[in-house]
Simulated scan of single mutants.
Amino acid sequence: GFDATTLNTLFVDKNLKHHGLIQAFSRTNRILNSVKTFGNIVCFRDLQQATDDAIALFGDKDASSIVVLKDFLSYYDGYDTEKGKHCYGYKELVEQLQSEFPDGLPVVGEEAERRFVALFGSLLKSINILSTFDQFEGKKIITDRQLQDYQSNYLDLQEKWRHRKSGDKENINDDLVFETELIRQVEVNIDYILLLVQKYHDGNCTNKEILVSISKAIGSSIQLRSKKELIENFIGSVNADTDVEKSWKDFVQRQRDEDLEEIIESEHLKPQETEKFIESCFRDGQVRTTGTDIDKILPPMSRFGGSRQEKKKSVIEKLQAFFERYFGL
């Protein structure tokens, strides 16, 4: 059948069996990334036995417990496989995390860092699965604030241990994996931050707890971390007379123009070509470092001696940082 990686849910109101069942179910079962690790089949008919028979016929007769999603309590409380291996549930993972790494305390030492990354990654995967169950609402043990704190530490370690990227995961020393895609699906955006800033403004800029919430939200976000200084500088300019939404837009535009001008002057870049290049980056959603676009904005330089390559590298690093700072605002 066709490959439909983005298809999430299939509704079935028809008796299926054998290869017809496998093909239909497989439409939604293509793995897309760390977030979509399985598909959802909503059956209006009892196809449990037909599913087990089809799996046994076309695959492993003992694989039904692997292919078919287990019940809510299995993922919430944990369960043992037929071979006796225990799979930790959400409740157990939270208890381990809070016991070994109390909220608010730094993770110290390489062994502890490895343990924390593995444990929190397992918790993220557990939450990802449980979020498909309606029963999970109201049964979350760890609060959003606590999750943000742990997530902030997790991202701090990712930056510290950054080595190489592979797909939607970042492998660290070959045996440590950061589940960044699972963080992206739940992270806050700039609109949420501005709502908090508005709330801070409406309280006459006196509620320090809101500032703490903003800081934690930024620290737990992959996308907003590079914008932290920009956001904090804006908050520092907010007073009782500030129109938060309008002032934010004006502030970002002004800072963006100033920062780009500083890069152009410090690197002696061609102004018009650089501005055109940056606009194309924001339009395309990335800074393209291949091709001749970068070369077109560089000042005249000799191609011999390696100085041009060093200049190009420096320019790319600054433009990449600039892009990450302002993209999405």
Rank of each mutant, 00 (worst) to 15 (best):
Val107Gln: 06
Ser122Cys: 07
Asn40Ser: 05
Thr5Cys: 02
Phe11Ile: 09
Asp53Thr: 04
Gln158Phe: 14
Phe282Asp: 04
Gly138Glu: 06
Val315Asn: 10
Leu329Cys: 14
Gln309Lys: 14
Glu95Ala: 15
Asp191Asn: 10
Ile41Ala: 15
Gly104Tyr: 12
Asn153Tyr: 08
Ile142Pro: 01
Val94Ala: 11
Thr292Lys: 11
Gly306Leu: 03
Lys36His: 07
Gln146Cys: 06
Asp202Met: 10
Gln151Arg: 14
Asp71Asn: 14
Glu324His: 14
Thr292Ser: 12
Thr274Asp: 11
Asp174Tyr: 11
Lys276Asn: 13
Asn40Tyr: 00
Asp3Arg: 13
Lys296Ser: 07
Leu298Gln: 08
Leu182Gly: 08
Gly59Ile: 00
Asn33His: 10
Leu319Pro: 06
Arg30His: 13
Ser247Gln: 12
Asp53Tyr: 02
Leu224Asp: 02
Leu119Gln: 06
Thr143His: 07
Leu32Arg: 08
Trp248Ile: 00
Leu7Arg: 01
Ser314Glu: 15
Glu187Arg: 05
Asp250Leu: 14
Lys85Phe: 03
Asp60Arg: 12
His268Leu: 10
Leu7Thr: 08
Glu261Thr: 09
Pro299Ala: 12
Asp191Arg: 02
Ala112Met: 10
Thr274Phe: 04
Phe72Tyr: 15
Gln309Ala: 12
Leu16Gln: 04
Gln253Tyr: 04
Phe72Asp: 05
Ile222Lys: 06
His268Glu: 13
Asp52Ala: 09
Gly138His: 08
Lys160Ala: 10
Val108His: 05
Ser247Gly: 03
Phe133Pro: 07
Ser247Val: 00
Gln23Trp: 07
Thr5Pro: 11
Ser74Pro: 00
Glu262Arg: 14
Tyr79Met: 04
Ser247Leu: 02
His163Lys: 12
Leu176His: 01
Tyr76Trp: 09
Gly20His: 12
Thr6Ile: 04
Gly291Met: 07
Lys165Ser: 10
Thr37Cys: 01
Lys311Tyr: 06
Ile55Pro: 04
Gly291Leu: 09
Asn40Pro: 00
Leu176Gln: 09
Glu113Asn: 01
Ile142Trp: 04
Thr289Met: 13
Asp243Arg: 06
Val177Asn: 05
Ile218Ser: 02
Arg303Gln: 04
Ile218Pro: 00
Arg27Ala: 12
Ile210Phe: 05
Tyr79Asp: 08
Leu16Pro: 08
Ser74Ile: 01
Glu229Thr: 13
Asp156Tyr: 12
Lys91Ile: 03
Arg164Gln: 07
Tyr76Ala: 04
Gly305Met: 10
Lys216His: 07
Trp161Pro: 00
Arg308Ala: 12
Tyr79Thr: 03
Val252Gly: 03
Val117Lys: 01
Phe11Thr: 00
Leu157Arg: 03
Gly39Ala: 06
Asp250Lys: 14
Leu329Met: 10
Ile22Met: 15
Ser307Lys: 15
Lys160Trp: 03
Tyr75Thr: 02
Lys312Trp: 02
Lys208Gln: 13
